[in-house]
Write a protein that binds this DNA or RNA. Structure first.
Lengths: 246, 246
DNA sequence: CGTTCGATTGAGTTATCTCAATAGGCGTGG
DNA sequence: CCACGCCTATTGAGATAACTCAATCGAACG
């Protein structure tokens, strides 16, 4: 069986490096929505390349549910920092049907040594993730629920739309309200009310998994959103490759 | 003039790599408490090695004060992910008198190419920072003020005490209440009340810059603190070197 | 056709904030 | 050496954002 392996890269990968990456990774596997890709607390054995779909990583907190840590869109690499630090992994589940190609830890470490160019790319990817996490941190610490929600919507919209232009456009929105609550550090009930307000103010509409931006300027203003932190890494290059690993 | 350059490393650096690092960095400079080391929004021109003291990075939010993003103890490297991503820097100020050795961006990038071993070390450092940031994220999202504050106190205590054993011991505590508020996403008034409660419950005492742990078990329980995320990187090796750069 | 899950609404509770005021410490300048 | 001013810690009191509990409703699903 063959499949497409889309890899978002920040500069052009040499054929050699791309080939090495493909060789190192296991055959991509598909998972259905809601599937568990990684059990929280397991030791780190592999990084995951999100070939298609959307995944989320999270941490559980004693009596307080879960906190989502990051969204992983197609092209993202998950678990680098965990492997490098030797720490136990956080949970990872599929928010949509998802295709994942795992890269075993040892193969990844070897790859980094042998393909410095690829290593630097992965490192940059981690830097991008760190910036996004920083933005979430700021939001949780200092933005009220309304602005925080608007900000996340902005982020999801920008990360998802390959097109740079953003207007009164629409995009799929794969998070339901309980998932939004986990991401935003809010209760489900409050998320619901915040969303109603965002709709009421004419900023968005959001029904059955589809988000429509009604007033991008307004939404950005409410959120205090500055897309710069996403820009330098927005799929500068998309590499397609067929794969048939050992 | 000579000075000590303490570098916390996770594995033994080759003499060559260490020498290259020292050559790449500018002469260390001292800053007084409260000094601005990096102006928020400037372009990234250099990474900073904290030689001594404690610094904090932060982001300002419109009408909501500042959110502290990270604490940087001696041996930490600041600004790697900003340089790699090309993004503008966050603010950086000294919480105590601090000694900083800057490594200009170009020199750093060259260093990474020429000294892969050192590069991997720096990468691991970034992975550690990511884990700590993740812990802050979880705290801000899902821990109540009381537990969140206890957790930060645990983190500071562990990161600061080189001694592994933790008992009814004391350590300097360089954050005042406004700074704690910035770190914890709380108001100063509430920080004050939370601290009073932590004292009242007999968990800590905290006066004039000195923290004393009165009940480590209890504090850890309240915080839900698991030191594992700090452990793999706690100053496995401390390298001392005299330096006289060009 | 019953069950489950997500969205929605109501109502009361509480954690945390804001505003305001006081008091102590410390540095600076007169 | 004292007086002033600023910063930090503390306290009180009222306001509010966000939470919890609980119930309803519709859609998806088996």
């Amino acid at each position: 069986m063959r499949f497409e392996d889309k890899l978002a890269a920040y500069e052009i990968l040499s054929d050699e490096a791309r080939h090495a990456l493909i060789c190192a990774s296991r055959p991509a596997r598909m998972f259905s929505k809601g599937a568990t890709l990684q059990i929280e607390g397991d030791p780190a054995v592999a990084a995951s390349l999100v070939v298609d779909g959307l995944a989320r990583s999270y941490r559980s907190v004693l009596g307080a549910g879960q906190q989502m840590l990051a969204l992983h869109f197609a092209g993202d690499v998950v678990g680098l920092s965990t492997i490098l630090s030797g720490h136990l992994v956080c949970g990872l589940t599929a928010l949509t049907p998802v295709t994942i190609a795992q890269i075993p830890k040892d193969a990844l470490l070897a790859l980094i040594e042998e393909q410095p160019q690829l290593g630097r790319l992965l490192w940059r990817d981690m830097a991008r993730d760190a910036l996004i996490a920083q933005e979430w941190l700021v939001g949780l610490g200092r933005r009220a629920a309304y602005a925080r929600t608007a900000h996340l919507i902005c982020e999801i919209f920008v990360r998802q739309s390959t097109a740079k232009v953003i207007t009164g456009a629409a995009c799929p929105f794969p998070l339901n309200q309980p998932e939004l609550a986990d991401a935003l550090g809010l209760s489900v009930v409050h998320v619901n009310r915040v969303l109603q307000r965002l709709r009421g103010e004419g900023l968005i509409s959001l029904f059955s998994g589809t988000l429509t931006i009604r007033d991008w300027e307004g939404l950005v203003a409410v959120a205090g959103f500055d897309p710069a932190y996403l820009a330098p890494f927005c799929n500068v290059l998309t590499v397609s490759a067929s794969q048939e690993p050992a």
